[in-house]
Design a protein around this nucleic acid. Sequence first.
DNA 1: TTTGAAATTAAACGCTTGTTTGATACACTT
DNA 2: AAGTGTATCAAACAAGCGTTTAATTTCAAA
Lengths: 230, 230
Amino acid sequence: MSTDDTRSRVLDAAGAEFADKGFERATVRDICRRAGVNLASVNYYFGDKEQLYVETVKEAQRMRSAQVPAPQWDADTPPEQMLRDFVGMLLNRMLRVKTAPWHSRLMMREVLSPTKACREMSEEFIRPQFEMLLGIISRLASPSAPLHLRQQIAFSVVGQCLHYRLAGEIVEILIDDDTRRRHYQIESLADQITQFTLAALGAAPPLGTDKLGDRLRSKHTPVESLPGKQ
Amino acid sequence: MSTDDTRSRVLDAAGAEFADKGFERATVRDICRRAGVNLASVNYYFGDKEQLYVETVKEAQRMRSAQVPAPQWDADTPPEQMLRDFVGMLLNRMLRVKTAPWHSRLMMREVLSPTKACREMSEEFIRPQFEMLLGIISRLASPSAPLHLRQQIAFSVVGQCLHYRLAGEIVEILIDDDTRRRHYQIESLADQITQFTLAALGAAPPLGTDKLGDRLRSKHTPVESLPGKQ
DNA sequence: TTTGAAATTAAACGCTTGTTTGATACACTT
DNA sequence: AAGTGTATCAAACAAGCGTTTAATTTCAAA
């Protein structure tokens, strides 16, 4: 955890402020007020606001990989299960931590509009995840599917997940509270997105015929290995 | 189009600035400089910056409905074609106008993070589009599919499209220029997303078997039996 | 105890922001 | 021609911003 020396307090407060308001709207004064330190601390420890921001993103990246590790699979894990795990991980990382620590929110911000200061960091953070998904897709798709098509399928998967994070405010407007409480829990969404994708690939019957969880969860080992953050 | 009196010039310049930089980062000075009018004009005609922003969003909404109307279909248009048209419209509205007039960019901004000043406006702008898509899905999906599932399928469609707009910078990082030029044109993406969705619904063969455009664009061919790759 | 570098502080600097002012130019009526 | 309300302008205002400074406190080594 964060020690309580001044530098760490500033870093933590800055992360929260940047995650909430973005770089421009977050002010050094608010950061220092939240950290309970003097106004000049930012410049004393980090030089200026921008270098503080970069350090904050690095910290978020460190914390996130330590705290929500990617799933590991046996050699005989069926690719359907891998897809379900991956989608679950994606949704959990995006939605579970909406109000929790600022690390995920800040990372999301960097993905959506990468700061030039952190561009290459975002890249090396995203690419391995994309390659992992691409590997799963390749096991599921027809062998004749060219690379660019498999890449687009991967984007289709990511897009479905991202939507619930980005357009969350619109979803709250369009779907009534009751329906949302009943059918928009993370695991339900993960099931739906997985089945949708598998059906599109011909690896499962079309949507609306049965529940995915009944097939995937029961057949193989239960999925509590999901990166659940407590 | 816009008359060249001062008020219109300010409104037009403000739209462009707000669309580019958002409310906070856009400055009254830049707006007036771009409009070629005096700094005080904003307050003279609109009261303050926030009221100018609201007027700008209203103007964008007016222009957009006049300029990019939703597709109209014959009674005998097959739902597959309707989905293709809808996806094409969505992608065009999101991507085509990246550099073009500011109206669409500003609307997109409002959808992603609705200003409290324009919340209800965004709602009445989004909902009809969502209902239209929901109608198409309902014709394609299994009759047994409950409402909440059809809604989530609609979100899956929107999510796939939105992704190319929102994570566009990440896509540019992950996919090399050549592949992007060849396979990431708007119409190609619309084909891929449509086929992906139709396949998921059992209304088309799984992805990677043939090109969608060949079937949909020429003439509608009925649904063939779903192939089983178990 | 003395010393000196590191850490912290209050205050101010210079700049940009949105907004307001008061004077001036213009167009139109009487 | 005089009067009148609208429109435009340069200039200044007050507030907030990131940053700097210079003085003070802290505290471990000498």
